[in-house]
Design a binder for these strands. Structure first.
Lengths: 329, 329
DNA sequence: CTACTCTACTTACACGTGCAAGTGTCACGT
DNA sequence: ACGTGACACTTGCACGTGTAAGTAGAGTAG
C-alpha cells in the first residue's frame, strides 16, 4: 500500500463515505441525489489523491472499452493522413472514446493485439482478413472498413480511372501505367492498376502498357528509363504515364530526363496522393488528391452506426477525389 | 447467454473440468502438472468455442496490461518511420506485448487516452509535458523518450550541426538556414536551427542567416525566392542552405530556380530525412538520413530497462545519423 | 401514533481472470 | 496397517469498478 495507485476505496475513506457514493459522485449518476457538500468532499478527496479510475476494471465491469483502433499499413502516408488522423481522434474523443493506431507489420496478427486491447470499434482503410473479420464479430467489436464503402471495386480503383480521364482530356490516347509490387501496398496497387485499365476501356482508348517497379528507394530510375525507351520508340508510342503514386511518378520523371524525353511535351506524367513535395518537382507534378478527412469521417460514421449510434452514412463516391493539374501533364 | 463471447467458465464446462484447470492449461503454468489428455481436452474445447481471454479481466488481475504505447506527432514521416514502427512492433511482440500508436493532436490530452488504455509502457519521440510525465509515474507506467537520449540538447540538434559540417567540407562559409514555425514541428525545428548555429560556431563560420517558412503546402516558393534574392545579393552572399527538412529543401531548390540560381553551383542545398522523393528531385537532394530503427531500438531498450528487464542501453550518439551526399551540394 | 415518502446514503453482487491453498485418490515403502 | 508423497485436480479469494437493492433517519400527512 506504500506506493500503489489510489483506488476509489481510498477516495471513499478520505472523504468519509462509502465507495458507492464516490462512484455516484464521480460518474454523476442521474437517479441518485447527493447533496452538494458531499459531492465537493468527494471530488476534493479524489483530486488530492490524484485518483484516476482503473481502465481495466471499468472495461471489465462495463463489458466494453472506450478504445477505437485504427488499422493502417506501412504506407508512405504523408501529412494528409496525419491530419485526417488528428481529426478522427478529435471526433472519437467527442464520443468519450480514445483513438489509437495499429500498424500491421508482415507477420503480426491483428488478433493478438485485439486480445490485448479489446477495443470497442475497429476502423480500417482496407479489407481485413476473413479470419480477422470473424474474430471481430465473435468478440462483438464494431468494424468498418473503407472496402465496404465501394463494394468490391475499391476506392483506389477510382483514382486510376481519374488519372486516365485527365490524361485523355489533355489529348493523350496511348497510356502507360507504372505500378508497384511492394507487398505492403498490394491492397492499393492492384485496384489502381485495375482503375487505369477501366478508364481506358470507358474512353475507348487502347489497352494501357503496364510495368512494375519498386517504390523508391527500391526502384531505380535506370530501370524505368529502360521501359520508357521501349514504350516511346514503338510505332504507337506511349505519350502519357499514370503512376501508382507520386513517388513512382517522380521516378518516372527522372527516368524521362535520363532518356531525353521532355515532360510534359514528350511524355505527360500524373501521380496519386499529392505529397507535399509533388508541387516542388521540376516540372510540378500533376496528381490525384485524396481527401482523407472525408474517408475517415465516413469510417467513423459507419462504425458508430454499427454501434447503434447514428445513421448509416451515405457513400462518399468521387467527391473525395480531385485531380490537381500541374505542369507535368 | 445467447450471444455473448465465451469465457473460461464455458470452456471448463465443455471440457468437464474446473475453471482453474483451464487456466493452468492455457497459461501453461509451470508448477502444476496436468496430464496430456486433459490438456488436449481443454485446448480442443477452447478452440471449439473460439475462446479468447478477456483482456480487461486479465489486466485487472495482473495489475498491468500488455500494451506499449508509442506517442508520435503529426509529422510528415515517410516510410522510414513506418518501417521503424514495424520493427518495433515485432520486438514488442517478442516480449508478449502489443504496440499501438497514439498521435497527439493539438488539444487532445494524452492523459485521457492513458486512462482508457492503461499501457504498461509509453515510448515517445519527444519530451512529454511535465504533467503527463507525472501522470505516468503516478500510474506506475514505464516511460522512455528520445529526449532522455541526449539530455537537453536533443537528437535533432545534431542533424543541424551535421548539415553545416557537410557544407563546410564542400567549401561553403556563409550558410543560410530555412526553418519552419509549424506548431506541430516545434519540437524538431527549434533544435535543428540551434544545431545549425552550433555547427557554424564549431567551425568558426559567420553566424548563419535565418528565415522561417511554412512547410508545404503552407509555404510557397515565391516567398522563399524573395529571401534568397536578399541573401545572395548581399556583399557577403550566402552560398549554401541548410533546410529544416527535405520538403523545405525542395521548396528552396524551386525558389532558387525562380531567382535564376543554379544548384549547386550558385547555391548548395541540403535537407533532413531522406524522404523517398529526395533522390528524384532535380538535382537529387543531399540530405541527412536518420536511422529510425536505431532510435526505436534504443527507446524500447530504455523502456524495458525501466520495467526491470534488461540493461540500460548505451547512448546511440551520432551513429544514427548519416549525411547522404547527392548532387545538390 | 402510525403510515408513508423522501433523502442520503450503504451493502452486496457481478464482471472474468490467475493463482495460492486445499482435497481426494492412488502407489509405494516400511 | 499406516504414514508419505506425488498426482490431478477443485475451491475460493482478490483485482477495482458500476449499480440494483436495501436501510436508517427525518419529515409529513392522516
Amino acid at each position: 500500500m506504500a506506493n500503489r495507485r489510489p483506488t476509489s476505496t481510498d477516495v471513499a475513506k478520505l472523504a468519509g463515505v462509502s465507495r458507492a457514493t464516490v462512484s455516484y459522485v464521480l460518474n454523476q449518476t442521474k437517479h441518485q441525489s447527493i447533496p452538494l457538500d458531499t459531492q465537493e468532499r468527494v471530488t476534493a478527496a479524489a483530486k488530492e489523491l490524484g485518483y484516476t479510475p482503473n481502465a481495466a476494471a471499468k472495461a471489465l465491469r462495463a463489458g466494453q472499452s472506450n478504445l477505437v483502433l485504427l488499422v493502417v499499413r506501412n504506407i508512405p502516408y504523408g501529412r494528409n493522413l496525419g491530419m485526417a488522423i488528428d481529426r478522427l481522434a478529435e471526433q472519437v474523443a467527442e464520443h468519450g472514446m480514445s483513438l489509437v493506431t495499429w500498424q500491421s507489420a508482415g507477420e503480426q496478427s491483428l488478433t493478438t493485439t485485439l486480445g490485448h486491447l479489446q477495443p470497442r470499434m475497429v476502423l480500417s482503410f482496407f479489407a481485413l482478413d476473413p479470419s480477422e473479420t470473424r474474430a471481430l464479430s465473435v468478440a462483438g467489436i464494431a468494424h468498418a472498413s473503407q472496402q465496404a464503402l465501394f463494394g468490391v471495386s475499391s476506392f483506389d480503383e477510382l483514382t486510376g480511372s481519374l488519372q486516365v480521364h485527365h490524361l485523355a482530356e489533355r489529348g493523350h490516347r496511348r497510356i502507360g501505367h507504372v505500378g508497384t509490387d511492394d507487398a505492403d501496398l498490394s491492397a492499393f496497387s492492384g485496384p489502381r492498376r485495375q482503375g487505369v485499365r477501366r478508364g481506358c476501356l470507358e474512353l475507348d482508348l487502347p489497352t494501357p502498357r503496364e510495368t512494375i517497379v519498386g517504390v523508391p528507394p527500391k526502384g531505380s530510375a535506370a530501370e524505368v528509363a529502360e521501359v520508357l525507351r521501349d514504350w516511346c520508340s514503338s510505332p504507337e508510342p506511349v505519350t502519357a504515364v499514370a503512376a501508382y503514386n507520386d513517388q513512382v511518378a517522380a521516378l518516372v520523371m527522372r527516368a524521362a530526363r535520363l532518356v531525353g524525353l521532355r515532360v510534359p511535351e514528350d511524355l505527360a506524367v500524373i501521380g496519386v496522393d499529392d505529397e507535399p513535395m509533388a508541387a516542388q518537382l521540376e516540372p510540378p507534378l500533376s496528381t490525384v488528391r485524396i481527401d482523407m478527412t472525408l474517408l475517415t469521417d465516413w469510417l467513423l460514421a459507419a462504425g458508430l452506426h454499427e454501434l447503434g449510434q447514428g445513421e448509416a452514412p451515405l457513400p462518399v463516391t468521387s467527391s473525395a477525389l480531385e485531380v490537381l493539374h500541374r505542369a507535368s501533364s
